[in-house]
Amino acid sequence: MRVIVFCHSLQSDWNHGNAHFLRGVCADLIARGHFVEVYEPADAWSVTQLVAEHGATPLKGFARAYPQLHSNRYPPGTLDLDLALADADLVLVHEWNEHALVQRIGEHRKANPHYRLLFHDTHHRAVTAPESMAAYDLRHYDGVLAFGSAIRDLYRAKGWAERAWTWHEAADPRVFRPLPGEPREGDLVWIGNWGDEERTAELHEFLLGPVRSLGLKARIHGVRYPEHALQALGDAGIAYGGWLPNYEAPRVFARYGVTVHVPRRPYVQALPGIPTIRVFEALACGIPLVCAPWDDCEGLFEPGEDYLVARNGNEMRGHLHDVLHQPRLAQALAEHGRRTILARHTCAHRVDELLDIYAEIAPAQSQAAPPAGALNTTKPQGEPQR
């Protein structure tokens, strides 16, 4: 099968967590023998910011970490959809694309019914910026892949799409796995962006405060930390490590005793059942996890077995102390959490679900086996533009 993906960026995960899951899905499709081709704009802000801060080295690091993945970086306004979609079977359009491109692809699908077209939503904008999401023209799309049932239901209720499926994110266990033997560097590590003040109070209560009161040796990685946030980290005695390539997270997790999940407020208040992909990745890496409150109403995990839940800062302090001082508890959490990921939440599981959805909506003539000799990797289109 020929799968075409339109996304903001596959190469850069600088303030762009959507790249994590897309990399795993594309890699798994390729491993199964499908042809995958990815398109991203040449001026993608994630790549632009990454190169401005760190040069071209991280892009080379991505190429080494994912040698099977490549992107076609196109200048805005010049993308030839007839060429890009000529032999497509399935097309995925991620929601961090311009409205005009989403509409253009939909109109192309109307005129060329040989492929199936799905919109992929992995953000809280359906709640926090509904006017922006309503502006996407999805009339000619075959449906929406939503990373939680609450998002799926919004598309249906608001009439943004006739069909929508829940398609949770997941971890790629080929990348996110335990790395025994790494030297211990500290007690707690957290990988996440400060963001748009959507969880400032929560970070103080569930992360900075407990670290300070317990005197933990802690480190934080991420971007978009304003000066007041950096000052707060310093006051809590937390080292700030800046941006971390996502494929390096397993090595960092392996050097610390525990990590935490502090969800953004929109997910807690309006979109229950949706964890960030960091939860899947941390559990896949076998590091004990303690979560600030979130409602796992879709039954993805087993709270208390896969991870501990702290209802407030005092409980977070207690849980962190216990995990760091009770090796059996830490080991039990790490092993149970990883088993759950391997049993239900890998990118391979999500590709199974995607192929089931495709089979449900595919035209009869598209369900034949792919032709012999079909390419099994994405094809590079020259050097990334700077």
Rank of each mutant, 00 (worst) to 15 (best):
G209C: 05
T378Y: 07
A63K: 07
G286F: 10
S12P: 02
I4D: 13
D28R: 08
E53K: 14
V262Y: 12
E182W: 03
L203R: 12
R184M: 15
V36L: 09
G304H: 15
A84I: 09
V252M: 04
T276K: 00
L355Y: 08
R219Y: 01
W165R: 10
M1F: 06
T346K: 04
G273F: 07
L81A: 03
A31E: 08
E37L: 07
S46N: 12
K110E: 13
F301S: 00
H99S: 10
Y256T: 13
A334Y: 08
R212Y: 10
C297D: 06
T57M: 07
G222C: 03
W14M: 00
E315Q: 10
H140D: 12
H108G: 01
H349G: 01
V144K: 15
M133C: 13
L118A: 03
Y240L: 08
T128P: 04
L10A: 05
E169H: 01
G195V: 14
D43S: 06
A42Q: 11
D187I: 07
P303W: 03
Q367H: 15
D89Q: 04
C285I: 04
Y39W: 11
F35R: 07
D296S: 03
P180V: 09
R139E: 06
T346G: 04
I287V: 14
P75Q: 08
E302P: 00
A88W: 09
R386E: 10
A134M: 05
Q103W: 07
R317I: 02
A368R: 09
G17E: 01
A164H: 12
W243C: 00
D89L: 06
L308N: 02
E383S: 13
A270S: 08
H325E: 11
D13M: 01
E335R: 13
I238G: 02
L230S: 02
E360G: 13
A359F: 08
G61W: 08
E53G: 11
G299Q: 14
P250T: 05
A27L: 05
W96P: 01
V290E: 00
Y115K: 07
R116I: 08
D137V: 07
D187T: 03
A239S: 14
D322H: 12
D87W: 13
G304P: 05
A111Q: 11
F280V: 01
G273D: 06
N18W: 02
P183I: 03
A343G: 15
Q49M: 15
R224P: 00
T48I: 14
V91H: 00
E53A: 13
A86H: 12
A282N: 01
D187E: 14
E202G: 04
A164F: 15
G222E: 14
A65E: 15
Y307E: 00
V252S: 01
A135F: 09
P183L: 14
E205R: 09
A31G: 04
L244E: 05
E360P: 04
D306Y: 14
S149E: 15
E53H: 12
